[in-house]
Structure formats: structure tokens, C-alpha cells
């Protein structure tokens, strides 16, 4: 452990003191998007003990950002990713945070791959569906779990009233982001989206718990993750709007884990689909996650079984016909 001294204190930052109140959980995380959600996620992951963290974001900190971002006025005009990485290194010297002022989708393949392959978990916290999809593809190619935190933008609800956290495992063990977000529009005017910091931070805190559970299946937090319910919706500390009260029947803070089915047709990205996706019977056996609640319910590809039976009957019929002709 680095024994550097802080500027104002002569007390060394020994590891046993820093994590005296909760055990350190570490691992490498790539965070694409260092904005209102991704910024707080990065800070929380550093507090939990994750290192290294790589932050990717092409934007600079603007004045209207500072009310809901870990950075403040001293960092105005600086790239969010590099400034936040610097802040994290300063506040948490045990976290090797690296910032990349870049658009993830515009990175050369080799550079993108070098960022992805060392990560234990990927986090996509951007306002661009195209970028979320690019992270999804990269996670699938590298065989890494990924988390997609976001805040709903919709005229029917209050600002930042509902948060959404999708999480995925590679190898068609869960539906991928594309399976779950086929309806997402490619672009929107979300730059101007409003949202209260308190509710956004709740989403960031919950996302950090999901990342920890994915990186450490032995951690008690992994009990939160059920492969049949890979979408988590959070309602902030605000009165519930009529448009969402069916999902959140109580006022104020609440969460709901929602089932995300594989699509009825093969997903163009992960190739998973409803009838040949990994069965619930194998759930949790190779990823360390607990089996789904309610027990295993293997699904059989009915069409494939019927075709096989029909083929067998046809072959038997042809064979018996050939035998009777010869005799």
C-alpha cells in the first residue's frame, strides 16, 4: 500500500486504516460516461476500493453541470474524464484512476479493445443510445459483464424520478443491452434534461453495488442479482407521478427488479432468443451468481423437438420402405 502522506495530514494512508470500516473490494472497471451518473459511480467505486478505473468521456465541465456532478467550479472548462480521474487519485490515492477525453464510439478499434480487455466490469453511463450499444458489443466481445445506469427522460414524470439499471452477463447468460433496449431512440435532446442530484446519486450508489456484486460473486451483495430480473428500476425521493404509479405503488423511495425476457427473434448482437437462450437450469452455475428465485424452469425449444421427431419418423419410414422393396 502506498504510504504517501496527505498534504494537510501527517497520517499515512495505510490500507488497514482506510478500509477499517468495511472490507475493500477491488477490480478493474471501465466507465464510459463521466457525467452526472457516471461521475458519481466512479467516485463510489473508488470508495469501495476498485482500482484501476478508466473513465472515458469527450465533454468538458460546463457551468450547468456542477449542481449534479462530483466536480465543481475549479474544474470548469476541463475535460470531465481527466479532471475527475485526477480528483479521485487525489482523494483516494489507492485508486489508480485514468481519464480519457474521448468519444468511446470514435476510438480506433485497437484503442477501444485495449481499454475493454483489462476491465473486470464495464459501465455505460452515457446519454447516447449508440454509445450504450457500442459498450454492449464490446462487453460481449470481451466476455465481460456490463452495467447500464440511466435516468428516465419523459414528459410524464418528474425530472430524475425514475432511474434504470440494466446489467448483463456475456455468453447469453442474460439478455444483452440490445435485447432489452430495442425501443430506445438513437438520439434525443437529453443534454437539457433536468434532474435532482439527490435522486441521481441514489442511482449511482445502487449502480456501484451492482458492479461490486458482478465483480465479486462471493460478496453478500450478489444476492441482489437474479438473472431472471436484470433490470432494476429505482424511484427517487419524490411524489410518484400518475404515469408510473402502477410500477411504484408507494410514494417516495422504492425499487423494483424487473424480468427482461430474451427477444422472440434472435438478437442481432448477442444472438440470444427466447427459445435457445441458456436455460434457467444452468443459471448461476458458471458465473457464481445465485440461482434464480422460484427454482429452475428449463425451457425446451418445442419447434426443434417436433422437427427432430418428424425427421426420425421420415427416416424410419424410408428405411422400412427400402427394406420391403429389397425383400
Amino acid at each position: 500500500m502506498d504510504l504517501r502522506l496527505t498534504e494537510r495530514s501527517a497520517e499515512p494512508l495505510t490500507e488497514d486504516r482506510v478500509w477499517a470500516r468495511h472490507p475493500r473490494r477491488t477490480g478493474a472497471v471501465l466507465i464510459v460516461g463521466a457525467g452526472a451518473v457516471g461521475g458519481f459511480v466512479a467516485e463510489e467505486l473508488a470508495r469501495i476500493g476498485f482500482s484501476p478505473l478508466h473513465l472515458v468521456d469527450p465533454d468538458t465541465l460546463a457551468l450547468e453541470n456542477i449542481v449534479r456532478h462530483p466536480l465543481g467550479a475549479p474544474e470548469l472548462g476541463q475535460p470531465k474524464a481527466t479532471a475527475l480521474a485526477g480528483r479521485i487519485r487525489r482523494d483516494f490515492p489507492s485508486c489508480a484512476a485514468v481519464g480519457h477525453c474521448a468519444d468511446f464510439t470514435a476510438l480506433p478499434d485497437e484503442e477501444r479493445w485495449s481499454l475493454v480487455r483489462w476491465a473486470d466490469v464495464l459501465v455505460a453511463a452515457t446519454d447516447s443510445a449508440a454509445c450504450q450499444r457500442a459498450v454492449n458489443k464490446a462487453a460481449l466481445m470481451a466476455g465481460r459483464p456490463a452495467v447500464f445506469p440511466a435516468v428516465w427522460v419523459d414528459p410524464r414524470i418528474r425530472d430524475a424520478e425514475v432511474g434504470e439499471i440494466l446489467w448483463t452477463l456475456p455468453g447469453r447468460r442474460t439478455p444483452c443491452y440490445e435485447c432489452a433496449a430495442a425501443f430506445r431512440r438513437a438520439a434525443s435532446d437529453t443534454q437539457a434534461a433536468r434532474g435532482a442530484r439527490v435522486d441521481i446519486q441514489l442511482i449511482a450508489l445502487a449502480t456501484a453495488q451492482v458492479v461490486t456484486a458482478l465483480a465479486h460473486p462471493d460478496d453478500a451483495r450478489s444476492a441482489l442479482l437474479d438473472r431472471r430480473h436484470t433490470a432494476i428500476y429505482l424511484h427517487g425521493f419524490t411524489p410518484t407521478s400518475p404515469g408510473v404509479e402502477a410500477v411504484f405503488p408507494t410514494d417516495g423511495l422504492s425499487s423494483r427488479s424487473v424480468r427482461v425476457p430474451f427477444p422472440p427473434r434472435p438478437c442481432p448482437v448477442c444472438r440470444g432468443w427466447r427459445y435457445v437462450a441458456s436455460t434457467d437450469a444452468s443459471a448461476g452455475r458458471d458465473d457464481g451468481l445465485p440461482p434464480p428465485r422460484g427454482g429452475a424452469q428449463p425451457r425446451w425449444p418445442v419447434g426443434a423437438v417436433l422437427t427432430a421427431v418428424l425427421l426420425l419418423v421420415t427416416v424410419l419410414f424410408v428405411v422400412s420402405l427400402a427394406q420391403s422393396t429389397h425383400s
Partner: peptide, 10 residues
Amino acid sequence: PVRAARWTFD
């Protein structure tokens, strides 16, 4: 059913 928001932000 509750319509999920078409758009999200970070």
C-alpha cells in the same frame, strides 16, 4: 402497462 422512457441521460 407503463411505458418505459424512450430516452435516458447519464
